[in-house]
Design a binder for these strands. Structure first.
Lengths: 201, 201
DNA sequence: AAGATTTTTGAACATTGTTCAAAAGATCGG
DNA sequence: CCGATCTTTTGAACAATGTTCAAAAATCTT
């Protein structure tokens, strides 16, 4: 039901995702209102609930696009003949850069809190897993001793650690940090982690 | 206005924070409703807005309590004559344990998103800084080469990295992880980081 | 006790997400 | 081309919720 989708520019679903993406990109996730986005598109309020389950469903589609763009940035960041350490460092910097250049949309990916008991659909989780796989790949060279499951877990840890730093710094929740400090801090973190990781346990 | 506060058990502000803390602890941040919490306390709806600026203000007071309890747990985790590496490892495990035992309240600390332009008040930021200081302390022994500012920044990075791992795993946003995997993953992360950190740059 | 001041109240308002019966439009058999 | 049937779209209505504020109640002052 979700997988086959006519990509026509006039498709209502597509137009709604476009408009929602614009709104979130400009005003943030909390700036997305059902009435606003349907007005942008020029349809009735109720039409949104024909096209999508609810607002969260629409947001998931915007977030899926963002994850796809990040995955593409990851894929484009590789250089042939790089060491695994270098690849991981490049991916981390790519992540920081992407987050900085897509603050609102990137925040929305992690700010969306599904209600208790409702989990993200498969077509969405797939995108997240694709990101993790791009990290697990170079990590496997650094840690040939880990099983595939452990590798997957460790890649998620690495992702979450970098993500946590970027997020806490970017949200400026407590005290703002000059933005040019984020890049070297993440670099130091990743350097420390890849050094530590390459050493045998 | 915020600093002097009669701690009496019958103080309305105090009772409201109690009730809000209970509600958040049980139903999560989104389970806190103005009507609900005032009914719990047995006052009128509007009374909440005499006692606090708004709901966010009330939540900040609940979160401040949580931060205080975490700070106390940090302070109680130290052993005399520990190495700096050990101290940091213990703090990280203390953090994981605290987050697991106070999931809802701990989530609320980071889930609260102040509206654009509104930043946390000083009496709140102080508590966050106290936590960071407890990390910067042992870190200073590992990295005597860093200036106080760099140390503060690096401590926040360390905190954010561990925080990111705990958060992403606990929220189970994408795929749930068995809870007993969190502790060893964080241990591996911190081990890698302290190893990397102790090496000269 | 009377007046002034402070606190408390809860009805009213504004904003939102969501539903759903009715209207409009599309499809198709004859 | 008409009418019947199905699909899509509509937007008024509803429910939940944060917030305000004029009036009522309580407290304090003299």
């Amino acid at each position: 039901m979700e997988t086959q989708e006519k990509p026509g520019r006039d498709n209502l679903r597509h137009r709604l995702v476009d408009a929602a993406e614009r709104r979130i990109g400009e005003q943030g996730l909390s700036g997305l209102k059902a009435r606003q986005v349907t007005a942008d598109v020029g349809c009735a309020l109720g039409a949104l609930y024909n096209a999508f389950e609810d607002l969260d469903d629409l947001i998931l589609h915007v977030n899926a696009r963002t994850l796809d763009r990040l995955a593409a940035a990851f894929a484009g960041a590789h250089r042939a003949g790089e060491s695994a350490e270098e690849t991981i460092a490049v991916l981390a910097q790519t992540y920081v850069r992407f987050a900085l250049e897509n603050r609102m949309l990137w925040s929305a990916v992690f700010a969306l809190a599904l209600p208790e008991g409702r989990s993200a659909p498969d077509w969405y989780v797939v995108r997240y897993r694709a990101l993790i796989d791009q990290i697990a790949d170079p990590l496997a060279k650094l840690r040939p001793d880990l099983s595939p499951e452990e590798l997957q877990l460790r890649a998620r840890t690495l992702f979450a650690a970098v993500h946590g730093v970027v997020r806490l710094f970017l949200e400026a929740r407590f005290l703002a940090v000059p933005q040019d400090r984020i890049t070297p801090e993440v670099a130091a973190l990743v350097k420390a982690m890849t050094r530590g990781l390459s050493a045998a346990e």
